[in-house]
Design a protein around this nucleic acid. Sequence first.
DNA 1: AATATTTACTTTGATAATCAAACAACATAA
DNA 2: TTATGTTGTTTGATTATCAAAGTAAATATT
Lengths: 135, 135
Amino acid sequence: MHSLNNLIIEFYDKLSSWEQSVVKDTGYSLAQVHTIEVLGSHGPMRMKELADRLGITTGTLTVQIEKLVNLGLVSRAAHEDDRRSILVGLTSEGTQLHAHHNRMHMQLTKDITRHLDNDAIDVLKTCFEKMNREF
Amino acid sequence: MHSLNNLIIEFYDKLSSWEQSVVKDTGYSLAQVHTIEVLGSHGPMRMKELADRLGITTGTLTVQIEKLVNLGLVSRAAHEDDRRSILVGLTSEGTQLHAHHNRMHMQLTKDITRHLDNDAIDVLKTCFEKMNREF
DNA sequence: AATATTTACTTTGATAATCAAACAACATAA
DNA sequence: TTATGTTGTTTGATTATCAAAGTAAATATT
């Protein structure tokens, strides 16, 4: 169990470094790409929900979204039921960036699982499913 | 392969959130704890190496280490062979903080693997070993 | 040996990210 | 209706960060 813990930490650490270098190449900041990633994979959402997912305050997010809107990656829309809220989502340009980032991730996944056979991959998937559920 | 990719991203995302909330409780910043973590798991090292591992410039690190030294978590020592370099390492207080953080990680590992049997854990370990090698 | 180049670290000045607190608009509960 | 809670923005302060310039030491070149 101790060794598994270390392997997880190492995996997380290397994934962080990888993400950092991939993001650097895009020219956008880590926070910006992270925002794009969340909006891309979960769809449009309210400021509050997005802030919670990103682990920042709504005050910080307001400023960030403003920048992303100016960059043409994100757009704001009125919330149907709640006039206090706005829905932020990706523009087509933002969606494109998200797709590009996703392809990078996909390539990484292919690369790092290069030496795993199909049986191992099946077990690995099941493990991740079960682990993700326990957070 | 596509589903595995998503599982990895979700895992990484949840681990990030967990780390963020755990760090918040310590009263130190994420960057500070990350520095402690690297020094704790790899032992004392030079500024340059530490900066590279953390993905920041040495200029940024100089400032950060200064703070950590003032907080009593980190100490500087002369490098034996290279008089340009200094070795930064944890004080006993820093080591204690690292141990505490490690226990948190260990507990998390136990929690999330709660529903995995021994065989699955063995496969999981092997998968992580192989994946970590490919980064 | 003398000089030039590279490397390790620090300092400085500027920018970006972040938070907490105060605020305004709206929703919900009493 | 009134009181309370929620959502998002603004503001002022702090912190993290970088790039560039500077210093000192190591290494390479001549």
